[in-house]
Amino acid sequence: MTVDPALAELSDTLFSASVAVYSAAVVAFCAQLAFGRRPARQLVAAGTGGDAPVAGDGAATAGPAPAGRASRWGAVGLALTVVGALVHAGVLVTRGLATDRLPWGNMYEFATAVVLVGVVSFVVLAVRVPGARDIGAYVLAVVVLAQVAIGLFLYAEAGPLVAALRSSWLAVHVSSAVLGFGVFFVSGIASALYLLRLRHDAGGGDAGSVLARLPGAVTLDRVAHRTAVFGFPIWTFAVIAGAIWAESAWGRFWGWDPKETWAFIAWVVYAGYLHARTTAGWRGRPAAWVNVVGLGVMVFNLLYVNMVSTGLHSYAGLD
């Protein structure tokens, strides 16, 4: 198995291109916010309770059509996001072709794939949930930051897989981990925005602030919850598939290796989030915090466990 250097280089070029396109999408989404309609002041209820409907919500679904210029910029932003996602997918495809294997064998490839899943989940949401497009500027800003950090700190040369990873479980386990993580990525951002929105609304709701152009708290909360509900079984499956693989690769299905431990912790936190959403006294703000902590645990598991601690999961490809 030899690496095709031309394809590997193309992959790296596409990576930079994806960052550029996503940055353009951020600019377009910011323009959407800038030209966006300013919610009438009296409509901004000082929502303290988590589920109190807030202006912007109903308006986005049933209200008058948003100002033409803003919605045009929103469409441009979304189109750029889709182009970016295609380029981003190209990064992985060319890497896979260059190395003749699935392109998620090290931390760089894994993280790149996670962000791609996050972007795709956002696009799906933006098309299906009215109002979700309004979080584009924030999601894409995080995406750009994540991509830059991945390129700077996690980059690993294209290369062959170590023996332990040559198994069809790579496709099953890592693909599901990527999917689950990517979906949680969007979910965590939605919960963080929900918390910001609540704070903004509680603070009197300065209509001029960009936060006033966020979708309403109810929409944000619902987006966060629906994505988490979608991601949780996938994550559960990823952990189970990991355990099945570990039984044949490492001689035991569970051994409290650091990555396993943190996968379990993340699982518990997300289970806690789903419960909290339906428990009196935990709805709204506290539940959203649990979701944000969940994303923190996922990122910690990716970064700390690969880079600082040592374990069997040390396939990061970093020296």
Binding site: G255, P258, F264, V268, V269, V305
Partner: peptide, 30 residues
């Protein structure tokens, strides 16, 4: 049910030192 969830959380919290400190079961040397 609430207690079960709290206990599940506790189990997760209890697992944290196990991943941050070296463990005999994983590596005596560490």
């Amino acid at each position: 049910m609430r207690t079960a969830i709290v206990l599940l959380f506790l189990l997760a919290v209890a697992a944290i030192p196990g991943s941050l400190l070296p463990q005999r079961a994983l590596s005596q040397d560490n």
